[in-house]
Each structure stands twice: as structure tokens, then as C-alpha cells.
Design a protein around this nucleic acid. Structure first.
Length: 269
DNA sequence: ATGCCTAATGGAATTAGA
């Protein structure tokens, strides 16, 4: 089963680029982020025509996540547990039924967290964007812990807005103080991994210089000034079934690209 | 230097992204 994650940066602006990639990459499942659309305005029929089931968790202007699947989706839930006051559409779960096994798909758009606002003790300012990011990561960890406890096979994939290590950025020194790369962000990332989760790309590839995002500004793509922030985290059961993980870098060079490119895994399910 | 670009909103300039 081929499962992809793709931050499309707006469904309306990405229809052609998205359908071109879908028709050629032929993923069985796609977890999409930043659709920037309400549920009613999402063009589900474009994907249904291609044989996908579509589950949307949208929001006006910003955020918004979607699951596409050629196989049936069951038990769909919207929103990350742990904060009833959180109105942002950044998380969706569904179970996909494979030939012999099922897996819980957790699609996520983790908050960016910039600008980083710290108080006099270098603690994130309450109600600031960075505090929201760190709290969101705590909630994600709690959800992963719950899925592990109930022995539900799962994967968590999407735009994590985390650069894991120096080798995941072309210019790591320029990111040191950024919400994507700060020590507090890395600590939360490692707390996720320390539950026993496997980061799929690094399970397959050790080399530096592989990125999933290039800024639209300052010729970042032409200078290969990228960062790797779109990830798959796999529970042990799912990690044992990982066969491949690749980044579809070429899509960044096409017409009207997203600033992110698709990342995909192949699982034996 | 929170900018050099892009998208959404709304119908001009602002917000957000990372």
C-alpha cells in the first residue's frame, strides 16, 4: 500500500498540479494538509472520479486536512483530542482496511509556532503561537500513547513543521532560533520518537540534503535552500511493514507548485 | 531584513506561511 503526505498549500490554486501528480504517482492513500477551504467548497468529485474515498476536515482560509483513499475508510474522527477550545482544523484520523491488515491513519498539520515569543525566564509566552505549537505536540504524543496502549496499529503523517536535525536543512545555522528548529521543539519531537515510533525516511536513508519544502522567496528552490519538515512516524507494528520511503522532489519544479512536495511510503499491508 | 513569494479574502491592503 502506497501512502503519501502532501501539504498542497491551497486546494483551489493546486488542482492541476495535484491531479497531475496523483495520476502519475498513483498513491492508494493521500494525507493532505493546508487545503485552505471549508468542507462544502472542497472539490471531492475530482478525487472520487479517480476512485478515491474522500474525508475532509476543513476551515475557512487557513489549515484544513483531508484523507483520500482507494480502499474504504472507517471510524473517521476530526480534531486532535486534548483541548476542546482548539478551533483549528489540523488533524484527522481514519482506519484503512488493507488486504490482510488495517492501519489507523493520523493526518496532521502541526502548528508552525512562529513568531517565537519568550518571557523573562525564556518560557514561551502563554497564548502565543509557540506555546500553542508545544502544547499541540504534547497532545499529539498523548494520542500516540493512547493508540499504543490499545495496540492499534497506526501511522502519523503530515506537515510536522519540525526540522529534525542539522542534515535536514541546507543552512541549519539560519534556523537555530526558529520554532521549527529550537531545542524546545526538538525535545517534543524526541519525546514522540521515544515512545518507540520510527521516522520512516530516516529508517531508509541516512544521507543529508533531502528536503520536502523550499520557500517561494529568495530563489530557495533554484539554490536548493530547503528543509525536511514533512514526516511519517510509524508505530512498531507498522514500522516492521515499511518497504520504502521517498520524496517526490520533481513536483517542486513544475508550474504553480506547492512550496512542499509529496513524501510517500510503501507498506506491506 | 520577519524581507525577497504565494494564497486567501474581498475587491485594497492585510494576514499567514516557514
Amino acid at each position: 500500500m502506497k501512502i503519501a503526505t502532501f501539504n498542497i498549500n491551497g486546494i483551489k490554486a493546486r488542482l492541476n498540479a495535484l491531479t497531475d501528480w496523483l495520476d502519475e504517482a498513483q498513491p492508494d492513500v493521500v494525507l493532505m494538509q493546508e487545503i485552505k477551504s471549508v468542507d462544502e467548497a472542497f472539490p471531492s468529485e475530482i478525487f472520487e472520479e479517480r476512485g478515491y474515498n474522500v474525508e475532509v476536515h476543513g476551515q475557512k482560509s487557513f489549515n484544513g486536512v483531508v484523507i483520500l483513499s482507494k480502499l474504504p475508510l472507517e471510524d473517521v474522527t476530526r480534531g486532535l483530542p486534548g483541548d476542546d477550545a482548539d478551533e483549528q482544523a489540523r488533524y484527522i484520523e481514519a482506519t484503512v482496511v488493507g488486504e490482510s491488515h488495517s492501519v489507523r491513519l493520523c493526518g496532521l498539520y502541526l502548528p508552525n509556532g512562529n513568531p517565537v515569543e519568550l518571557d523573562g525566564n525564556d518560557a514561551p509566552v502563554k497564548d502565543g503561537k509557540y506555546a500553542y505549537k508545544l502544547a499541540w505536540m504534547d497532545r499529539l504524543r498523548a494520542r500516540a500513547q493512547q493508540l499504543l496502549a490499545e495496540e492499534t496499529p497506526f501511522l502519523m503523517a503530515g506537515d510536522y513543521n519540525i526540522i529534525p536535525q542539522d542534515e535536514d536543512a541546507a543552512t541549519p545555522d539560519s534556523w537555530r532560533g526558529d520554532a521549527l528548529f529550537r531545542p524546545e521543539s526538538h525535545a517534543k519531537w524526541r519525546a514522540l520518537l521515544n515512545l518507540g515510533l520510527t521516522e520512516a525516511f530516516r529508517a531508509q536513508t541516512q544521507a543529508p540534503g533531502h528536503y520536502s519544502f523550499w520557500d517561494y522567496q529568495a530563489g530557495a528552490w533554484n539554490r536548493n535552500n530547503g528543509i525536511r519538515i514533512d514526516h511519517f512516524l510509524l508505530c512498531p507494528y507498522t514500522a516492521d511493514r515499511l518497504r520504502d520511503c521517498q520524496i517526490d522532489k520533481d513536483t517542486r519544479a513544475r508550474d504553480k507548485p506547492s512550496d512542499h512536495v509529496p513524501v510517500w511510503i510503501e507498506l506491506d499491508l
